[in-house]
Nucleic acid binder design. Structure first.
Lengths: 238, 238
DNA sequence: CGATAGTTTGATATCCTTCAAAACCTGTGG
DNA sequence: CCACAGGTTTTGAAGGATATCAAACTATCG
């Protein structure tokens, strides 16, 4: 099993052996956490950049009335913001959605990597820009699509991102989300999410049980979603 | 009238005289454009970073079915992404909402600034992170708030951002948006935007005519929106 | 095996859209 | 200075997508 970060960065540009070694070394020093743990809370100023090596996480915000908005999903190979140090405090939290393995990279170490490994630095910037592009696409998703297309779009995106890091097995991906969390992601209630997913199931598009999403008809799902993967800026497939 | 970029960056950290001079020099070399001009189109790879010195612009995407989502507003002092060069092509367009003055900074020039002026570099990174934070907050806005609160929230944000660059006169800001554009920003139809705005007017909260937004009761508007400005990461007021 | 979290169902309410037309601006050319 | 064209705002009526509430059912986990 290859390092997900290497796989991801390699889908943007070639890396030298030295670069790959460094990334492997970083990913080797992980800590395990339980699902539900917060890596960073709103209001904190973190000391490390976190790299997710295994499992899922999410960025989220809780509003005063208790409602929650999920702002991003992190999957293996994803980092919380590289430049996190510049801001005085976090304006959102990052929490684990499944049991996970996480590498912590100190500010100094991060700086050293950026200085000494220009290829990695460039690839990490690319990853940052892609994160932003994903955020923009989520906004489009919420603003312009109905519930059915919205969920389809999210599934298409997560499928591609998982594929990028080598985590698609057959037509299945690990998707450790409750329907309520799905709803908090795309601005729908869990009840409505449930009905839409049932419809997708009955139409033979997907299965979703045991935290496993199976896409039976990817082509049709993409069509429903109006999915155009260009925003993920995947350059060459590994 | 102070340079809006200097004002904005100064709200994050102090700058040296040399830094300020440089920024002033950049802002002095502008070109004027008419409202409706696209600075960058989807699919292009731009050669310059654009800095908006006067007027409003917006990032937007057009979907295959013709619908449009506005992803961000740019006001004086805002740059289109500093690292735009890393991506092979734009996944969205940037267009002017009003007549505007724009400075173009070449890739090489940008690189020189980042290398030779660490304080500016850091401030520009901060600005980038804030842009991303705004995007996240827009997602929260769309996902969790109803039409009334959504519009209120947008008005609160734009008011603060305009204040940050010294463009609030009394209780008024320049807001060159049609109700349809407002709708494309927050995922509502122009008809519904119209009704919400009428309600705000009738309640004495705001006026909106002649591309001028007046906020009569900022406190109440913030309360309706559930507006918490922390995501703008304004450190010290100039 | 009981407790707790997650999914499913049904009935009803509401926010927002859609469609269509009228009224109102704003700029332009005669 | 008027008239007209095109864009923008406003109004009304009706329909639809999604929310809300409440309860039953089903997994999961210690």
């Amino acid at each position: 099993m290859t390092n997900p970060l290497v796989r991801k960065l390699a889908s943007f540009r070639q890396l030298h052996d030295g670069d790959v070694d460094l990334l492997n070394r970083i990913c080797a020093q992980t800590r395990s956490y339980k699902a539900g743990t917060d890596l960073i809370r709103e209001g904190e100023q973190p000391n490390d950049v976190f790299l997710l090596v295994e499992g899922w996480a999410h960025r989220y915000k809780i509003l005063p009335d208790g409602s929650r908005q999920i702002i991003a999903y992190l999957i293996p190979g994803d980092l919380c913001d590289i430049h996190i140090f510049i801001l005085k405090e976090m304006d959102h939290a990052i929490g684990l959605l499944s049991d996970a393995r996480v590498a912590a990279i100190s500010k100094a170490e991060m700086q050293r990597i950026l200085d000494d490994h220009p290829a990695i630095a460039q690839a990490l910037f690319w990853a940052t820009l892609v994160d932003e592009a994903v955020l923009r696409e989520w906004l489009v998703n919420m603003g312009q699509r109905d519930a059915y297309a919205r969920i389809a779009h999210l599934f298409c995106e997560m499928w591609l991102r998982m594929e990028q890091v080598g985590l698609v097995t057959g037509r299945e991906i690990f998707l450790p989300l409750t329907q309520e969390q799905l709803g908090d992601t795309i601005g729908l209630t869990k009840v409505h999410v449930n009905r839409v997913i049932q419809r997708m199931r009955s139409e033979g598009l997907i299965s979703l049980t045991d935290k496993t999403l199976t896409i039976h008809d990817a082509e049709k799902l993409r069509e429903i979603a109006g999915f155009d993967p260009n925003y993920l800026h995947i350059v060459h497939q590994a």
